[in-house]
């Protein structure tokens, strides 16, 4: 029997993996970076919370709906993104984070600064889900999303995405409809972030706009950048590492943002493919250590 405290850590790890993957999809497969992903998590969390609290919808319907709402805003951002160069797109996503928080705080429908409380615990077979079951649900969703992303990456969509990232002009000549695929990447990515938001809301049972500020976006970005933008492996391992490690090194907690910031600087300067990315010193080292090429074959994007 695992104590509930570890359920908590595992649940947060799962949520972080989803967020990190969501950045990975956008960055890895469309060459875009979002600096405001906490906004989509907020949209997912609020959609799910309001559906279950105000409209008494079941969690099992609210979660997909939250993904859908988040993806719709993502679609809008994707359309805007077509008009912007990548660095200005990045600061637009950052701006979106501030705007979404501002709207949640000021518009009269979202509980303002009080947030939304009394969010129901999801029901399963007519009973409230236990902590263990909830953790299992999170793990299952992570597995599902990883599988879906993996399948997309293997299929022709992934090919198009990589084309866009590597050489936009060539991809265009080869008949890839860039606009369509970029927007698709935004939709998938923001839907994943929406699911993560929904899981967060029904775990904490109480959310406020302040939970989803810009610092969270930076943390999400760090998870993905540290692991390596692009592959499934990178974001997943980055998220696991950065969620579990600080729990053991409590003293790091006070230096948390300093650590995140320096990690971003150092990784971007010296190891832009991330710690677990293709040809990073860690993967190369591990490869040499275990001697086999096949252990990490094919995963690196």
């Amino acid at each position: 029997m695992i104590p509930a405290y570890y359920h908590t850590i595992m649940t947060f790890t799962c949520i972080n993996i989803l967020l990190s993957l969501s950045i990975g999809v956008l960055a890895g497969y469309a060459g875009q970076v979002s600096l405001g992903h906490a906004a989509f998590m907020a949209i997912g969390a609020y959609a799910s919370a309001m559906l279950t609290v105000t409209f008494k919808v079941s969690f099992w319907l609210a979660m997909p709906a939250a993904a859908l709402v988040s993806a719709m805003v993502g679609l809008l951002l994707g359309v805007i993104a077509l008009r912007l160069k990548e660095d200005f797109l990045a600061i637009t996503t950052m701006g979106l984070n501030f705007i979404v928080i501002g709207v949640l705080l000021y518009a009269p429908y979202f509980g303002k600064a009080l947030g939304i409380g009394d969010i129901p615990v999801p029901m399963l077979f007519g009973e409230e889900m236990g902590r263990g079951m909830y953790t299992a649900l999170c793990l299952a969703l992570v597995a599902g999303v990883v599988a879906a992303v993996w399948w997309l990456q293997r299929s022709w969509i992934g090919l198009a995405w990589r084309g866009i990232r590597e050489a936009q002009d060539v991809a265009q000549v080869m008949g890839v409809n860039i606009a369509k695929f970029k927007i698709f990447a935004f939709v998938i990515s923001t839907a994943i972030a929406g699911i993560a938001g929904s899981l967060y809301a029904h775990f904490l049972l109480f959310i406020t706009p302040y939970d989803f500020g810009f610092p969270l976006s930076i943390q999400i970005l760090t998870l993905a950048v540290l692991g390596g933008l692009g592959a499934i492996r990178g974001p997943v391992l980055g998220a696991i590492l950065l969620t579990i490690l600080p729990e053991y090194l409590r003293f790091i907690q006070d230096y948390r943002m300093l650590t995140y910031g320096l990690l971003l600087v150092l990784v971007m300067m010296y190891q832009p493919q991330g710690l677990f990315g293709h040809k990073s010193f860690l993967t190369e080292g591990l490869k040499r250590l275990f001697g086999g090429e096949e252990k990490i074959r094919g995963r690196a994007a």
Partner: peptide, 8 residues
Amino acid sequence: IEAKESVI
């Protein structure tokens, strides 16, 4: 001063 940390 975070809800999430307070739960942990």
